[in-house]
Amino acid sequence: MDKLKRLLAPLLSSARDLMPIVVVIGFFQLVVLQQPIPNLGELLLGTLFVVIGLALFVKGLEMGLFPIGESMAHAFARKGSLTWLLLFAAALGFGTTVAEPALIAVAEEAAKIAAAGNVIENTPEAMESYANGLRLTVAISVGFAILVGVLRIIRGWPIHYLIIAGYIGVIIMTAFAPPEIIGIAYDSGGVTTSTITVPLVTALGVGLASSIKGRNPMVDGFGLIAFASLTPMIFVMGYGMLI
Protein backbone atom coordinates (compact mmCIF):
# COMPACT_ATOMS: atom_id res chain seq x y z
CA MET A 1 0.00 0.00 0.00
CA ASP A 2 2.76 2.36 0.96
CA LYS A 3 4.71 1.45 -2.13
CA LEU A 4 1.70 2.08 -4.32
CA LYS A 5 1.27 5.50 -2.74
CA ARG A 6 4.90 6.38 -3.43
CA LEU A 7 4.44 5.36 -7.03
CA LEU A 8 1.19 7.24 -7.51
CA ALA A 9 2.06 10.48 -5.70
CA PRO A 10 4.36 11.88 -8.43
CA LEU A 11 1.87 10.91 -11.13
CA LEU A 12 -0.92 12.67 -9.29
CA SER A 13 1.12 15.82 -8.85
CA SER A 14 2.02 15.85 -12.57
CA ALA A 15 -1.63 15.36 -13.42
CA ARG A 16 -2.46 18.35 -11.22
CA ASP A 17 0.19 20.42 -13.03
CA LEU A 18 -1.41 19.57 -16.33
CA MET A 19 -4.99 20.28 -15.28
CA PRO A 20 -4.96 24.01 -16.16
CA ILE A 21 -4.00 23.35 -19.81
CA VAL A 22 -6.69 20.71 -20.18
CA VAL A 23 -9.30 23.06 -18.70
CA VAL A 24 -8.23 26.01 -20.89
CA ILE A 25 -8.18 24.01 -24.11
CA GLY A 26 -11.45 22.25 -23.27
CA PHE A 27 -13.19 25.52 -22.43
CA PHE A 28 -12.08 27.34 -25.57
CA GLN A 29 -12.83 24.39 -27.82
CA LEU A 30 -16.28 23.54 -26.45
CA VAL A 31 -17.59 26.89 -25.22
CA VAL A 32 -15.92 29.61 -27.26
CA LEU A 33 -15.28 27.93 -30.60
CA GLN A 34 -18.17 25.49 -30.06
CA GLN A 35 -16.50 22.56 -31.73
CA PRO A 36 -16.15 18.92 -30.69
CA ILE A 37 -12.83 17.61 -29.39
CA PRO A 38 -11.15 15.75 -32.28
CA ASN A 39 -9.21 12.47 -31.82
CA LEU A 40 -10.21 11.93 -28.22
CA GLY A 41 -8.21 8.70 -28.03
CA GLU A 42 -4.96 10.31 -29.12
CA LEU A 43 -5.60 13.22 -26.82
CA LEU A 44 -5.98 10.97 -23.79
CA LEU A 45 -2.91 8.93 -24.71
CA GLY A 46 -0.87 12.11 -25.21
CA THR A 47 -2.00 13.52 -21.89
CA LEU A 48 -1.04 10.26 -20.18
CA PHE A 49 2.41 10.49 -21.83
CA VAL A 50 2.88 14.04 -20.58
CA VAL A 51 1.91 13.04 -17.03
CA ILE A 52 4.29 10.05 -16.99
CA GLY A 53 7.06 12.10 -18.62
CA LEU A 54 6.81 14.94 -16.11
CA ALA A 55 6.87 12.52 -13.16
CA LEU A 56 9.97 10.74 -14.52
CA PHE A 57 11.67 14.08 -15.25
CA VAL A 58 11.20 15.28 -11.66
CA LYS A 59 12.56 11.98 -10.32
CA GLY A 60 15.60 12.19 -12.60
CA LEU A 61 16.11 15.81 -11.59
CA GLU A 62 16.53 14.92 -7.94
CA MET A 63 18.64 11.84 -8.66
CA GLY A 64 20.87 13.06 -11.48
CA LEU A 65 20.89 16.69 -12.59
CA PHE A 66 20.81 18.43 -9.18
CA PRO A 67 23.45 16.21 -7.51
CA ILE A 68 25.89 16.36 -10.44
CA GLY A 69 25.59 20.16 -10.70
CA GLU A 70 26.17 20.59 -6.99
CA SER A 71 28.94 18.02 -6.63
CA MET A 72 30.86 19.63 -9.50
CA ALA A 73 30.42 23.04 -7.91
CA HIS A 74 31.84 21.74 -4.64
CA ALA A 75 34.70 19.95 -6.41
CA PHE A 76 35.67 23.10 -8.32
CA ALA A 77 35.49 25.19 -5.14
CA ARG A 78 37.80 22.72 -3.36
CA LYS A 79 40.20 22.56 -6.30
CA GLY A 80 40.49 26.32 -6.12
CA SER A 81 41.40 26.90 -9.77
CA LEU A 82 39.47 29.88 -11.05
CA THR A 83 40.64 29.40 -14.64
CA TRP A 84 39.25 25.88 -14.91
CA LEU A 85 36.00 26.85 -13.24
CA LEU A 86 35.47 29.76 -15.63
CA LEU A 87 36.39 27.56 -18.58
CA PHE A 88 33.87 24.98 -17.41
CA ALA A 89 31.20 27.68 -17.02
CA ALA A 90 31.80 29.02 -20.51
CA ALA A 91 31.88 25.53 -22.04
CA LEU A 92 28.65 24.57 -20.32
CA GLY A 93 26.90 27.73 -21.52
CA PHE A 94 28.17 27.38 -25.08
CA GLY A 95 27.69 23.61 -25.33
CA THR A 96 24.15 23.55 -24.02
CA THR A 97 23.03 26.36 -26.29
CA VAL A 98 24.60 25.63 -29.64
CA ALA A 99 22.53 22.46 -30.17
CA GLU A 100 19.31 23.79 -28.63
CA PRO A 101 16.40 22.93 -31.02
CA ALA A 102 14.41 26.07 -30.16
CA LEU A 103 17.40 28.20 -31.08
CA ILE A 104 17.91 26.37 -34.38
CA ALA A 105 14.27 27.10 -35.26
CA VAL A 106 14.58 30.78 -34.37
CA ALA A 107 17.84 31.14 -36.32
CA GLU A 108 16.23 29.71 -39.47
CA GLU A 109 13.29 32.06 -39.07
CA ALA A 110 15.67 34.97 -38.68
CA ALA A 111 17.53 34.01 -41.86
CA LYS A 112 14.24 34.13 -43.78
CA ILE A 113 13.55 37.61 -42.47
CA ALA A 114 17.02 38.81 -43.37
CA ALA A 115 16.66 37.40 -46.89
CA ALA A 116 13.21 38.96 -47.31
CA GLY A 117 14.57 42.31 -46.14
CA ASN A 118 17.47 42.09 -48.62
CA VAL A 119 19.99 42.12 -45.79
CA ILE A 120 21.56 38.98 -47.23
CA GLU A 121 21.21 37.31 -50.62
CA ASN A 122 18.09 35.23 -51.05
CA THR A 123 19.92 31.94 -51.63
CA PRO A 124 19.89 28.80 -49.45
CA GLU A 125 23.65 29.08 -48.89
CA ALA A 126 23.53 32.67 -47.71
CA MET A 127 20.59 31.91 -45.46
CA GLU A 128 22.29 28.89 -43.94
CA SER A 129 25.47 30.75 -43.20
CA TYR A 130 23.45 33.59 -41.66
CA ALA A 131 21.52 31.12 -39.46
CA ASN A 132 24.71 29.36 -38.38
CA GLY A 133 26.37 32.66 -37.57
CA LEU A 134 23.41 33.65 -35.47
CA ARG A 135 23.42 30.36 -33.57
CA LEU A 136 27.11 30.70 -32.88
CA THR A 137 26.58 34.29 -31.71
CA VAL A 138 23.89 33.24 -29.25
CA ALA A 139 25.91 30.27 -27.99
CA ILE A 140 28.97 32.47 -27.42
CA SER A 141 26.83 35.03 -25.62
CA VAL A 142 25.41 32.36 -23.29
CA GLY A 143 28.92 31.01 -22.62
CA PHE A 144 30.00 34.56 -21.78
CA ALA A 145 26.91 35.02 -19.58
CA ILE A 146 27.52 31.91 -17.47
CA LEU A 147 31.19 32.88 -17.14
CA VAL A 148 30.33 36.37 -15.86
CA GLY A 149 27.59 34.90 -13.67
CA VAL A 150 30.00 32.45 -12.02
CA LEU A 151 32.55 35.23 -11.53
CA ARG A 152 29.83 37.28 -9.85
CA ILE A 153 29.02 34.46 -7.41
CA ILE A 154 32.72 34.09 -6.51
CA ARG A 155 33.31 37.81 -6.07
CA GLY A 156 29.92 38.46 -4.50
CA TRP A 157 28.96 41.34 -6.81
CA PRO A 158 25.36 42.48 -6.32
CA ILE A 159 23.30 41.10 -9.19
CA HIS A 160 21.15 44.13 -9.89
CA TYR A 161 24.04 46.35 -11.01
CA LEU A 162 25.01 43.82 -13.64
CA ILE A 163 21.42 43.34 -14.76
CA ILE A 164 20.81 47.08 -14.97
CA ALA A 165 24.01 47.46 -16.99
CA GLY A 166 22.68 44.72 -19.28
CA TYR A 167 19.36 46.53 -19.66
CA ILE A 168 21.17 49.72 -20.59
CA GLY A 169 23.16 47.69 -23.12
CA VAL A 170 19.94 46.34 -24.63
CA ILE A 171 18.41 49.82 -24.87
CA ILE A 172 21.49 51.32 -26.50
CA MET A 173 21.72 48.47 -29.00
CA THR A 174 17.99 48.82 -29.79
CA ALA A 175 18.58 52.38 -30.89
CA PHE A 176 21.22 51.33 -33.42
CA ALA A 177 20.20 47.85 -34.55
CA PRO A 178 18.24 47.36 -37.78
CA PRO A 179 14.50 47.14 -36.94
CA GLU A 180 14.07 43.68 -38.52
CA ILE A 181 16.41 42.07 -36.01
CA ILE A 182 14.92 43.58 -32.83
CA GLY A 183 11.98 41.17 -32.41
CA ILE A 184 14.20 38.14 -32.93
CA ALA A 185 16.90 39.51 -30.66
CA TYR A 186 14.40 40.08 -27.83
CA ASP A 187 12.92 36.60 -28.28
CA SER A 188 16.32 34.90 -28.47
CA GLY A 189 16.87 35.76 -24.81
CA GLY A 190 13.96 33.57 -23.81
CA VAL A 191 14.58 30.53 -25.96
CA THR A 192 18.19 29.79 -25.08
CA THR A 193 17.71 28.04 -21.77
CA SER A 194 16.48 24.50 -22.22
CA THR A 195 14.83 22.12 -19.80
CA ILE A 196 18.09 20.31 -19.10
CA THR A 197 20.29 23.41 -18.90
CA VAL A 198 18.15 25.19 -16.32
CA PRO A 199 18.36 22.61 -13.50
CA LEU A 200 22.08 21.99 -14.14
CA VAL A 201 23.03 25.64 -14.16
CA THR A 202 20.83 26.41 -11.14
CA ALA A 203 22.39 23.57 -9.16
CA LEU A 204 25.86 24.80 -10.19
CA GLY A 205 25.14 28.34 -8.98
CA VAL A 206 23.55 27.28 -5.72
CA GLY A 207 26.31 24.72 -5.11
CA LEU A 208 29.03 27.34 -5.68
CA ALA A 209 27.35 29.91 -3.46
CA SER A 210 26.95 27.40 -0.64
CA SER A 211 30.55 26.19 -0.80
CA ILE A 212 32.16 29.64 -0.82
CA LYS A 213 32.43 31.34 2.56
CA GLY A 214 30.39 34.52 2.93
CA ARG A 215 28.01 33.76 0.07
CA ASN A 216 24.33 33.17 0.60
CA PRO A 217 22.88 30.54 -1.75
CA MET A 218 19.60 32.44 -1.96
CA VAL A 219 21.11 35.88 -2.68
CA ASP A 220 24.13 34.76 -4.71
CA GLY A 221 23.27 31.29 -6.00
CA PHE A 222 20.51 32.25 -8.37
CA GLY A 223 20.95 34.62 -11.29
CA LEU A 224 22.92 32.57 -13.83
CA ILE A 225 19.81 32.00 -15.97
CA ALA A 226 19.05 35.72 -15.83
CA PHE A 227 22.41 36.51 -17.44
CA ALA A 228 21.92 33.75 -19.99
CA SER A 229 18.66 35.33 -21.11
CA LEU A 230 20.00 38.89 -21.22
CA THR A 231 23.30 38.70 -23.14
CA PRO A 232 21.85 37.01 -26.27
CA MET A 233 19.68 40.08 -26.88
CA ILE A 234 22.71 42.36 -26.94
CA PHE A 235 24.86 39.98 -28.98
CA VAL A 236 22.15 39.22 -31.55
CA MET A 237 21.51 42.94 -32.15
CA GLY A 238 25.27 43.34 -32.54
CA TYR A 239 25.24 40.53 -35.09
CA GLY A 240 22.41 42.27 -36.95
CA MET A 241 24.45 45.46 -37.13
CA LEU A 242 27.61 43.76 -38.39
CA ILE A 243 25.99 41.71 -41.17
Binding site: I25, E42, T47, L54, L56, M63, G64, P67
Partner: peptide, 29 residues
Amino acid sequence: GRVLAGFLYVLIGLAFFLEGLELALFPLG
Protein backbone atom coordinates in the same frame (compact mmCIF):
# COMPACT_ATOMS: atom_id res chain seq x y z
CA GLY B 1 25.13 4.70 -10.65
CA ARG B 2 22.40 6.81 -9.11
CA VAL B 3 23.37 9.89 -11.15
CA LEU B 4 23.38 7.85 -14.33
CA ALA B 5 19.97 6.43 -13.52
CA GLY B 6 18.80 9.99 -12.89
CA PHE B 7 20.01 11.10 -16.33
CA LEU B 8 18.19 8.13 -17.83
CA TYR B 9 14.98 9.12 -16.05
CA VAL B 10 15.34 12.69 -17.33
CA LEU B 11 15.86 11.48 -20.91
CA ILE B 12 12.95 9.05 -20.92
CA GLY B 13 10.75 11.50 -19.03
CA LEU B 14 11.44 14.32 -21.49
CA ALA B 15 10.85 12.01 -24.46
CA PHE B 16 7.44 10.99 -23.11
CA PHE B 17 6.66 14.58 -22.19
CA LEU B 18 7.50 16.01 -25.63
CA GLU B 19 5.81 13.17 -27.51
CA GLY B 20 2.69 13.56 -25.37
CA LEU B 21 2.60 17.29 -26.14
CA GLU B 22 3.02 16.58 -29.86
CA LEU B 23 0.23 14.01 -29.72
CA ALA B 24 -2.32 15.86 -27.67
CA LEU B 25 -1.83 19.49 -26.88
CA PHE B 26 0.15 21.08 -29.68
CA PRO B 27 -2.10 20.16 -32.62
CA LEU B 28 -5.24 21.26 -30.81
CA GLY B 29 -3.62 24.32 -29.24
